[in-house]
């Protein structure tokens, strides 16, 4: 694998995660529990779409085959998506699940962008310096809600505890790496996710303690394989909706 191929793959991962999570958040547009949250979720979706655009565009440039950011987002199938399984998980219109999903992902994204600001690749460091400020707000906002719901009423505590049980099995996968990471870490372009794991746990523990939530016991089933294109059944449904228009009307332009 060449450095160029590895870098393209790395950018696709960040872009896929951002775009799939953005899709999940945008499902709440017009359906938020209160107006301010409706706006907040749409805003977070917008930030993520912006991040996805930056990384898709860069991936397209690195690939150099004339594909555009839109081709990468709308003309690839499930097995080609290299996003983490966490971001595609449905929330079944449970607000707490949606907040927890974004919180768990954003904590890692925050740490990753913080490290990537020092990447030897200028485009990666530039995009990361931009994205980290946005993601900081996402962690703060979603973390606030995890606390409010966890330390809220009996019902809100019960429901977000269930969300923790449902989503925890997708957390180890956030740290899975392959030869792409190995190559890029060696070149000072990417960050070794293993070095971020403890910091991620600290962020999660801090919020869970305030929220009076407990982490599921270690050793339970953990999902695997997103970076190799192995996904849960939910991704296909997301892509069917997200990609419908450009596939049905290939000449459509923005």
């Amino acid at each position: 694998m060449t450095l160029n191929d590895a870098l393209k793959e790395y950018c696709l991962r960040i872009a896929d995660n951002s775009s799939i999570l953005a899709h999940r958040l945008s499902e709440w547009s017009g359906h938020g529990p209160i107006l301010e949250e409706d706006i907040a979720m749409s805003n977070m979706a917008l930030d993520l779409i912006g991040q996805a655009r930056g990384f898709y565009s860069y991936a397209a440039t690195l690939e150099g085959k004339g594909r555009t950011e839109d081709d990468l987002a709308f003309r690839r199938d499930t097995r080609e998506f290299v996003s983490r399984n966490l971001v595609e998980q449905p929330d079944n219109k449970d607000f707490g699940t949606a907040m927890l999903r974004s919180f768990l992902y954003s904590c890692l994204s925050y740490l990753q962008f913080r490290a990537l600001m020092n990447s030897k690749d200028e485009t990666i460091s530039g995009l990361s310096a931009k994205a980290i400020k946005e993601v900081t707000y996402h962690v703060r906002h979603c973390g606030d809600w995890v606390v409010r719901l966890g330390d809220g009423t009996e019902e809100s505590h019960r429901r977000i505890s269930n969300s923790v049980e449902d989503l925890w099995m997708y957390t180890s996968e956030l740290f899975e790496q392959n030869e792409v990471d190995a190559l890029l870490v060696k070149e000072g372009v990417a960050v070794d996710l293993n070095t971020l794991k403890q910091d991620w746990l600290n962020l999660v523990d801090e919020i869970f303690a305030q929220a009076k939530l407990t982490k599921p016991a270690e050793g339970g089933y953990q999902s695997s394989g997103g970076i190799n294109g192995m996904h849960t059944e939910h991704l296909g449904y997301i892509l069917a909706e997200m990609q419908f228009l450009p596939r049905a009307y290939p000449d459509a332009i923005w």
Binding site: E36, N43, E134
Partner: peptide, 13 residues
């Protein structure tokens, strides 16, 4: 603070 997110991405309420 009412909300971290306002009418545009750059503003809070």
């Amino acid at each position: 603070l009412t909300s971290q997110f306002g009418s545009t991405a750059c503003k809070a309420l």
